[in-house]
Design a protein around this nucleic acid. Structure first.
Lengths: 191, 191
DNA sequence: GTCTATATCTCGATAGAC
DNA sequence: GTCTATCGAGATATAGAC
């Protein structure tokens, strides 16, 4: 483990807790305990819980975007790159660290905290739509396919897959949903 | 508005708050204020917050299941009934009152509270799979389509559509995702 | 910069009057 | 059955020593 200064440890602890318990379910006290810091440190480096959460969310969003962009920009057919994105998940039961935040009332109520989440999913949908357009141009996907619609369906399948998996207490429904959308894309491509 | 006794008002207030703020974000105090009741009433009728939440969740799940079953059991082609389910939503920004609970750490951590959520989505996936099987038998969907996979993809599209909509602060991504999966089902059917 | 002490609320629950 | 009073604990933030 790299050596981290206090501000860094606070941000990392907050990222973990936001993922595990959400914004409403995460207390400054829990963050401090996990980071091994005292009250004073947190309020020295950050204005308060919302400010620290904002730093944590921004970092999680940046990391996610870089990872997904790498998959969608890799060489290969459009369908293969979409499949790579869909197959990215390793532990569906943990859910998406960004999508999770949309169910947090205090995140959605705050324009500042919602902004990075909004931007990520906006970027994701447009990036996926580009890939769909490339697939159409190469004849992998039918020219009638609306790129924005397919992109939204693919992104929704992943986010909804987490919901189904967490409800079931098993990753299986996530995997099924991913296989289902891939089968539909393949069938549509063959049409 | 029908006249409701105190226990009834407590359950209904809890249902609303669980939908709006989730389990972690809902306090007994908020429930009591909305229900217009005092502390004593709640602890007379229910053992505590988890017990009241369980009653609320069970009712929400039962209501949802009855509504969706009506749509999926109506006359019409398989694709038309799936479209009716996908088009059921009126206000995507509110999210799903059941799916929302899967992002609540205290719900997922409790076997008792998660059980009704699990059962609903389990039922939904199998009911959708039945409809897919009927569609296959009638030649509306290709015989190669795996019913369980398509069912999971359809259910995930709805749940993920809520995530995208709430991130965007707009119902549009939800609608796009629904149109996308419907277009794919239509294209696969034509294949 | 980091710590401990403190302040003020709220949480979730209990006690006991009526 | 419903109310108010009260409880111990935790949430979020501030104060001030070091």
């Amino acid at each position: 483990m790299r050596i981290m200064d206090t501000a860094e440890r606070l941000i990392e602890s907050t990222r973990e807790l936001l993922w595990e318990r959400g914004y409403v379910g995460t207390s400054p006290k829990a963050i401090l305990e996990r980071a091994g810091a005292g009250q004073g440190s947190m309020y020295h480096h950050f204005k308060g819980k919302p400010d620290l959460a904002l730093a944590a969310v921004r970092r999680t969003v940046a990391e996610m975007r870089a990872e997904v962009d790498a998959l969608l920009s890799a060489p290969g057919t459009a369908r293969r790159r979409i499949a790579a994105y869909l197959g990215r998940e390793r532990d569906a039961l943990r859910g998406c660290p960004v999508g999770r935040l949309t169910m947090d009332p205090d995140i959605v109520a705050s324009d500042e905290l919602r902004a990075p989440v909004d931007e990520l999913f906006d970027w994701l949908r447009h990036r996926l739509a580009e890939v769909v357009r490339e697939g159409r141009a190469r004849g992998e996907l039918p020219a009638t396919a609306d790129p924005e619609q397919l992109a939204a369906a693919v992104a929704a399948t992943v986010q909804g897959g987490y919901v189904l998996a967490r409800a079931a207490g098993s990753a299986e429904p996530f995997d099924r949903a991913v296989e289902g959308i891939l089968a539909l894309l393949a069938a549509a491509g063959a049409a």
